[in-house]
Design a binder for these strands. Sequence first.
DNA 1: CGGTATCCACGATGATACTG
DNA 2: CAGTATCATCGTGGATACCG
Lengths: 118, 118
Amino acid sequence: MATVPRPGPYVCGIDAAMDVIGGKWKVLILWALDERGSCRFGELRRLVPGITEKVLAAHLRELEADGVVHRESYQEVPPRVEYSLTPTGARLNAALAPLGAWGREHVLGGVPHPDAPR
Amino acid sequence: MATVPRPGPYVCGIDAAMDVIGGKWKVLILWALDERGSCRFGELRRLVPGITEKVLAAHLRELEADGVVHRESYQEVPPRVEYSLTPTGARLNAALAPLGAWGREHVLGGVPHPDAPR
DNA sequence: CGGTATCCACGATGATACTG
DNA sequence: CAGTATCATCGTGGATACCG
């Protein structure tokens, strides 16, 4: 992965996108944010079981730098931060839908119900 | 990545698919095979500049184990091997198209020509 | 031509502890 | 609550040499 000044040069749009979603947990984070609309840090940690705080924080910073996640920090005590998808992030998620359908059909067992998301 | 008995369990189809295309050069290999239809080993090496023989061979073995690439070995001398996409692989490539469009638009500069593939 | 066999470097991730 | 700091680990990929 990387942050926004891309190392490139990219051969095509796909490896550029792969660089954005290349982190081990990134698509799960995007998925959680897409379903919930807005999440706090601890909530995300629970929604992505197994991820450590360090990696979650790092992934969120990269996704933010890539313009797909918005971070809103409320200066309160106790601290409160809300993460959400940007419009660009929502479009990325939509672009991932066909890939999810392929994975369900060809990697996981067949297609039990065509309306199950991802 | 991994070979066909998947480590899983996957949370959704997307991370299952990500595991198939997760290698550094895999989408480029799929792209090349999609454009050419069928490629020999040395041809692929030229079409994916920078990849080493070892990694190309490893990626091809994994893609084959995942059922997206077909390997046809002709018992001749000099040796000849042809790689091509399986129907499943072609569908995977089609599923990657929206992701490529997103990458072109949001990571690379705008959309100079809407007919350029990937 | 189409690979394998070794060895190695590096970056990404994991574990744990601590802080504003 | 929402992180940061530090260190250990592990897997992917790179370099090079060799083989049927």
